[in-house]
């Protein structure tokens, strides 16, 4: 009798794994790769201006007396258009936003900022995703909270929606 029950074990195991696989297929998987640089200082970098209107961006621009936002974006990126009003709202609240434009042409950057508004104090040009890779960012747009000492404190992946504005303000306050 005991032996006969034992015979069902392989089938039970198979049913368990089939069930598990079936269940996991219905679960939504996050496509985001999070940076593991939170809590680490920004790497040294100095990027040339992305267009003529504003200066470029360097690590030194993040070191000072207040936390700032580092926004990774590009003029060819559609979600970046969607988040433009939220960046302007953040700037209106007194937040300094330093942009890094990925693989972008100066004319396109200038055009984007005239069309969708310019919330930046500086925009550096990262033509080969050098700084993006160095801070563990895997796409556009992404927004990092950098504290006054130049340490990465928070990463927001994807475009900033209206309800994310309060969240980012809270993270900036925490980084103070």
């Amino acid at each position: 009798m005991r032996n006969r029950l034992f015979l069902w074990v392989p089938l039970a195991l198979f049913a368990f794994f089939a069930g598990l696989a079936g269940y996991m297929l219905t679960q939504e998987k996050s496509q985001f790769v999070e940076s593991t640089m939170i809590g680490e200082p920004l790497p040294d970098f100095a990027l040339k201006p992305a267009f003529e209107g504003l200066p470029g961006a360097a690590k030194a621009d993040f070191v000072g007396t207040k936390p700032r936002l580092l926004n990774i974006w590009a003029s060819w990126c559609l979600p970046c258009i969607a988040e433009a009003p939220q960046l302007e709202a953040l700037q209106a609240q007194g937040v300094e936003i330093i942009g890094i434009a990925i693989r972008d042409r100066p004319a396109d950057v200038a055009n984007f900022l005239t069309r969708y508004g310019n919330p930046y104090s500086r925009v550096g040009a990262d033509d080969i995703s050098e700084v993006q890779l160095a801070i563990g960012s895997s796409g556009v747009p992404e927004t990092f909270v950098i504290d006054a000492a130049g340490v990465i404190r928070y990463q927001h992946i994807g475009d900033i929606r209206e309800d994310d504005v309060a969240l980012l303000l809270a993270e900036l306050e925490k980084a103070r």
């Binding site: 590009a74 003029s75 060819w76 990126c77 559609l78 693989r103 972008d104 042409r105 396109d108 033509d127 080969i128 995703s129």
Partner: peptide
Amino acid sequence: LLAMPLTAQDAMPPAPYA
């Protein structure tokens, strides 16, 4: 709309050792 990001991403020359 679909085509825009694709074409635009290639507007810049690739990195030297890409």
